Amino acid sequence: MTVLGAFKGNPRNDLSWLNSSGRPDPEVVFHRANLPRVGLDDVPAASSGVMCSVALYLQDGDIISALTFISAGTAAGTPTNQIAALYSGAGALLGQSADKTTEAWAADAAKSFALSSPVRITRSGVYYAALSVAAATVPTLVGSVGSKPFLTGEANLAQTSGSGIGATAPATISSPTFKRHVPLVVAS
């Protein structure tokens, strides 16, 4: 028996399907994502004017300038406010985008939200990328399904908070509620 147990193949070959979760060439485009690019589906974001935040592991030294979410099968209908924000693991606002107000967001389309100023990460750990859309029809997002935390100290993979959020992200994530549907976010 080897360090790999009874497995006799090349682990890199066996795990090659996971390459779809990473960037195609790490030297070309820096980004961090909360989910791999496989096994994703159409998931609800949050109600109109409610913030949905997802856990995202960031490394010390990362500089985050934008957060990108991808709509799924349902486009935004009559949007009035669309903002994204980056929060610390403790829920303190680190940066937010400008409000995209009534800008269209079609189905199956990536929407990038540039932060008002880049955020330099000074400590590796879990951060929260948040999205709030106020609209007659909130777009569904590309994402997955996660389980509720059950270990002490474990973070929600996705959560909702607030209501009536417009052009300004709340200073903190207060009273978060577990959300089973986990949208994909890409930080760059």
Rank of each mutant, 00 (worst) to 15 (best):
L157S: 12
T101S: 14
E27V: 00
G146R: 08
A33Y: 00
D25N: 15
A171G: 07
S97R: 04
A129I: 03
D108K: 12
S163P: 02
N81D: 15
G89R: 12
S117Y: 05
V142G: 00
G95T: 08
L4N: 08
G162L: 09
T168W: 03
D62S: 01
A66D: 10
L15E: 07
G5Y: 04
P149M: 13
S47Q: 14
V54D: 00
C52S: 09
D41C: 12
G9M: 10
A110Q: 13
S174R: 05
T177V: 15
G9Y: 05
A98I: 01
A6F: 06
V54C: 01
S97G: 06
S132W: 02
C52Y: 02
Y127G: 07
P79I: 07
S144A: 15
T101Q: 14
Q82H: 10
V43I: 15
A85D: 07
S116Y: 01
L131C: 05
P79A: 01
E103I: 06
V142Q: 12
T140G: 06
P36Y: 05
D99T: 04
G61W: 08
V138A: 09
T160I: 12
S16F: 00
L141T: 02
Y128P: 01
S161Q: 02
D25Q: 06
V29W: 10
V3F: 13
Y87I: 00
M51E: 14
R123K: 14
A167E: 11
Q96I: 00
A167G: 11
D99N: 15
A45F: 03
